[in-house]
Structures are given as C-alpha cells and as structure tokens.
Design a protein around this nucleic acid. Structure first.
Lengths: 345, 345
DNA sequence: GAAGTCTACGAAATCGATTGCCGTAAACGA
DNA sequence: TCGTTTACGGCAATCGATTTCGTAGACTTC
C-alpha cells in the first residue's frame, strides 16, 4: 500500500503549535508580507511562518471561498483550444492568472450556442468570480443575458457591442491588407472570411472592403465566402470559389489556417502563388512562416491579448472602471504576396 | 448600476420553505433519483425538488468539498495546448469529465521541469482529486515523487515506467512506418524524432529501428535527430540533416507538424516529395491531409485517449484496480509516400 | 493623571453542505 | 399481543478559514 498522504495541517493545527488563536494565524498568513506586522508581534509572525513552512501548510481554498464568497477562479470559454490562436490567447490568460494567484477553468464551446450555455452554467455553478469569453457571437444574446445577471465578464479575441473586450484591431488589420493589395495592384480579391457571427471575421472583412472602397475598388458580394477558420474550411471555401468560376488575383483569408487550406487548393488547380494569386492570412502563426511558401499575414498580439483580458477581468471584479482595448495589428509581408514592382524586400 | 445578482438560495433556505430540516434537503438533493425515496416521503421529495427548481438552487461546491474532502476536480498538465495533439486529447478529457460531473483545470508546463513542479503544486493546493499528465519525462523523477505522496495520477500521450498510462501504441506505430518503408524499398531513412525525454519520440523511433533491424536494415546514429515536435523544430532538424550532407530517401517525423516543417525545407532545397524523399508524419492531424502534398501518417486516437485517461483516473480515485492501456495506431497512406512500384496506394 | 490611542491578540459566529446518530410511528411477523 | 423492522427525518457536529467585536495592557498627550 502506498504511503498514506499525510493529513494536511490546518490553521488550527498551527495555532495550537504556536500557542496562539486561529484568528492570529489567519491574519498573519493572509496578509501580504509587508502588512503582517500589523497583526502580530514580530516574534509571533516568525513562529507562525516557520511552523507553516515546516509542516507544509497550504490554505484550503474551499474553506476560504466558502467564507469569503470569493473563489479566485475565473472561467474561460473558447470556441476550441485546437485552434492555435485561442490556445495562445489562453496561454496569456494562464500566465497572468498565475501571477495573480488566480486559477482558471477553460472549456471549449465549439461555437455551439447550446454547449456555450451549459458549460457556462457549469462554470458559474463552480462559483467562478468572473468569465472570459473568446467565443462571442454577434447574433446571439446569451452574453447580454449573462451580464444582466450581474456576472462579471470580459470578451477577448472577438468583441460584441456593449461588452468590455480586449481584441486585436481587426478592422485596422483588414485595412492594412487592403493597402498592401492596393500597393501590389492586386485588387481583384476573394475573401475567405471565416464565420459570419464572429466579429473577427466581420471586422477584418469590413476593414478590407472599406479601404478598397476608398480607393474606388468594389468587392463583389460573391467574392466573400464564410466557411470557417480552420484548414478544412479554407479548402472548402477556396474550392467553392474556383468551382464558381471566379479567378481572383488575390485571396485574403481571415485566418492563417484557412489560408493554408486555400493554398493547397490553389496549387492543386495549378495556380502559382504568388504569381497568379497573392495569398494573405491573419494572425502570423508559426505555420505561416514555415509552410511551403512563406505567407504574408497580419501579426496579432495573441499572448498579450490573453494577459490583458485577464487583467481587465480582475479590475472589473475589483469594481474598477474598465474599458475595451484594441491591440494594434501589424502587416508581415512574405513570399506569398511578393509580387510588387518594388524589390521583394 | 447593474441589477444585483440575486443572493443564491441555499439548502437552508429550501429547508425553511419546505418546512423540513436541511439534512433532509441535503439527502434528497444529494441522492441519485432512484434513491431519493429512501430519505423522504414522495410528497416531501416532490416539494423539495420543485422548490430547488423554482429558486434555481445550485449546490455550493466549496461547502460540499470542505465537508467531504472531495472536490470533483481533476488537474490536467500538458506540455502545451498550442500543440494540436494535446488540445485534442484535452477535448476528450473535458468531454468525459463533463459527463461525470467533474471539472478540470488545465495548465501548460512547456515541458519545463520547474514549471511542471510549481504548476502541479498549484493544482494540488487547489485540492484536485487527481491529476492527468500529458507531459511525462522519461528522465525526470518528479512523477515518482508525486506518487510516493499518494496523489492519484494517470499519464496520457506519454507513458513512464511504473505509472498507469493511456497512450497510443507508439512502438507499434513505429513498426508500421518501418513496414511501409520496407514495402516501398525506401529504407535510407532519417528520423526527426522529437524530444528525447518523451516516450512518444522514443517508442516511435525504437519501433521503426527494431522493425528495420529485423529486415536487416540498420539506421545509423546520425540519422536520428531530436529537436522537438513542432513545425519550427522540424525545419531546424531537417535543415541540420541536409547541412550535414545526409541525403535520405525517406524521412519519418514523429509528429505531423515537424513533418510539415521538414517538407518546407526539403522543397526549398529542391527535393521532390515523394519522388526523391518519402515523408511520413504521425498523428494524422487535419493539416496532414490539407497541406500541399497530402501526407502519409499514423492515425492515433487522440480524443479517445483523453476520454480513457479521465475514466481511468476516476476509477483510480474510486479505489479500483486500473491498468495501462495502449490504443492501436493505424497507417494512413497518402501522396507523400506514394512511390511504391505497386499502384499509388 | 485622566482620557485617548495603539498594539497584539482572542472568542466566537459564520459560510453551506454532509452525515452519524437518534427518535418516533406505523407496519409487520409470529 | 408484543417485539422488530422500516420509513421518515431531525440534531448537532464538522470541514477550515475569515472576520467582527472585544479586551487587556502599554504608551501618549495636554
């Protein structure tokens, strides 16, 4: 039989050993180092700290949460962790959470509104202090209802009118792509836009369209196709476009993975990238650089986004005034659009 | 000011409303439906259930955990959720957990032994009932120490001698690749093996080598290179191999992403895949099929692996006898190795 | 030197749920 | 008829930490 896990010491145990009351132990152990002396004599503080150390004391979070009605837990809902982008944002969240003594639950909603609801409920039932959503839908009021109920929440990756969010300035990202295309003179563009209910898809597309319009270029309705953000969706969308007889000289995918899927299809059909078709992705995931033809893309600060989202949520929980934040995107030009009359940089 | 979140009802509240004691409420609400009548009259049961429903009662898990010393929480440690494989395994874990009323914490250890320790500690401090590790190292005794302390734990993805694990039969996977190469007559193989301390890398490589040895083929020491599992590592490894003047007619990467990285490098150097070099990956991630040249790979049951890992952990926590499990791998032949004298597959 | 002001703690009430131990009745067995 | 189950459910102790009152003594202050 394996050695039984030693019964953990509690504050009561430490109190008895130190000859003080649990109240004192609680106060000493619960205060930040520079505040401890406010509660006990230096000698007492030292004794308690030493005992805690020796006996490997760790606070029982359930007991603490029961008393304080504060769990130091936040829930994170993402469409899918398989998505590199969300996994990276989550890393940022996790990092900032650890730094602040917070733990996180993550769940995949698969962008399914039913799952979104049941899993959010599961988190609330677990008494999280607040929630971060990476799967906001433009066309669903679930989040509004939640806020009505007074649940502290912050959005990230995708925004939604009326909610605090930390996102990439996707509209600007779209504009950057448009400007790049204008410079290249490749304005007969097809947009593999992602999912219609995601603000990322919407804003990136809108930014592109608006900027092109300012230059007098119209993007026809049938050049926009919404199929999803992953590789399979990119293949699908690109395939449909070609099948419809559309022959663009540029393709903008609102996600690198979709772009990679599109790349495969384009090559299968004998199109050269970038000579026949310039290809641009979004997010600057590692694959963008490593795939056969290094891909032009928009770099977004995913990790930072996660960090800021968590920090914002913490501020919100603390009752502070918080506001939305848009992180700046950056255009990264690579071979997949290296067709400019200027050098290939 | 947003509407204040209504103070949640507690069992005490329900008890008062129903005119019974909290003990009865607790028993009725805590028993499985078919056991409820053992504790209260049908009428009472109905009243309590109705009141709970009406007032949206949800059990306070902190209070319950405090009392029972059981949290219904399990911790999951993965090297990195950015890795599609681990993200998928986690989805399986999450799914099975939800079905069993269990919640999960996930954390990234980044395969850093220090992070591994501190984050595991953070989970234990949170009083998880058990842990699943997806980042076991062959050369580190951390997990052994943990088990000594009586912490219930199960490994997945990677195994480690002396621990219960749910993995893919990686050794067999390696053998399958070897057999495929023997059939193709492409036995001058380079192995981009991944990380040396990971059993996945070790077993897949060993399986390949052993099977080739049985056929009288030796894999020279310098044809094995350990650089990591991701795309960047694949690029790096492949680059070094070529720089060393090695010119294999087949490359086996123990991970699809590394394979994709290698593919890029091979093409950059003017090698044709599969004509000059056959390329084989591992895991059958969606990208394997979608990337320029559809890739031969080994399919592993990642989602199922996660499910089984969780179920195994639950059994372990329940005090049952559990044993390791190896899921069967399957060879998926695609264009990247379609060079057989037989038809293309 | 009387009245504040600190300092350093302690007592005890909570937080919400679980559970072992009992008590009371009605039903049952022989 | 009387002892024994069985059904139904209350009492009260706990789990471990936090926090509101207090209090006793030391120190100031005018």
């Amino acid at each position: 039989m394996a050695q039984q896990r030693a019964r953990a010491v509690t504050q009561r145990g430490l109190a008895e050993l130190a000859g003080v009351s649990v109240a004192t132990v609680s106060r000493v152990l619960g205060s930040p180092p520079d505040q401890r002396h406010r509660w006990a004599a230096p000698e007492t503080v030292r004794t308690i700290l030493a005992l805690a150390e020796d006996h490997g004391y760790t606070r029982n979070p359930h007991a603490a949460s029961l008393r304080t009605a504060r769990s130091n837990l936040v829930g994170v809902m993402v469409p899918r962790l398989q998505d590199f982008v969300l996994a990276t944002i989550y890393e940022g969240i996790e990092e900032a959470a650890m730094e602040n003594g917070i733990n996180t639950y993550v769940m995949n909603s698969l962008d399914d509104t039913a799952l979104q609801r049941t899993r959010t409920r599961a988190m609330i039932d677990r008494r999280v202090d607040g929630l971060i959503f990476g799967d906001a839908h433009l066309d669903d009021t679930f989040l509004d209802e939640l806020r009505e109920q007074g649940v502290p929440l912050v959005l990230t990756s995708r925004r939604r009118e009326g909610h605090v969010s930390v996102t990439c300035d996707d509209y600007l990202g779209g504009r950057l792509v448009a400007e790049h295309l204008l410079e290249l003179g490749r304005t007969d563009v097809v947009v593999l836009a992602g999912l219609e209910f995601a603000s990322t898809a919407y804003d990136r597309t809108r930014g592109l369209i608006d900027r092109l319009a300012e230059a007098g270029v119209e993007v026809p309705e049938n050049h926009l196709i919404y199929r999803g953000f992953d590789t399979a969706a990119g293949r699908q969308a690109m395939g449909e476009i070609l099948e419809a007889g559309i022959r663009p000289n540029a393709v903008f995918a609102t996600n690198d993975f979709a772009a990679i899927g599109a790349l495969g299809v384009l090559q299968d059909h004998g199109f050269s990238v970038p000579n026949d078709v310039a290809l641009i992705g979004y997010n600057d995931t590692p694959l963008a650089e490593s795939v056969g033809i290094p891909m032009t893309t928009i770099r977004s600060k995913m990790h930072l986004m996660g960090r800021e989202a968590l920090l914002t949520l913490l501020a919100l929980i603390a009752g502070k005034e918080v506001s939305s934040q848009k992180l700046e995107p950056e255009l990264i030009v690579r071979a997949s659009s290296a067709v400019s009359v200027r050098g290939t940089r």
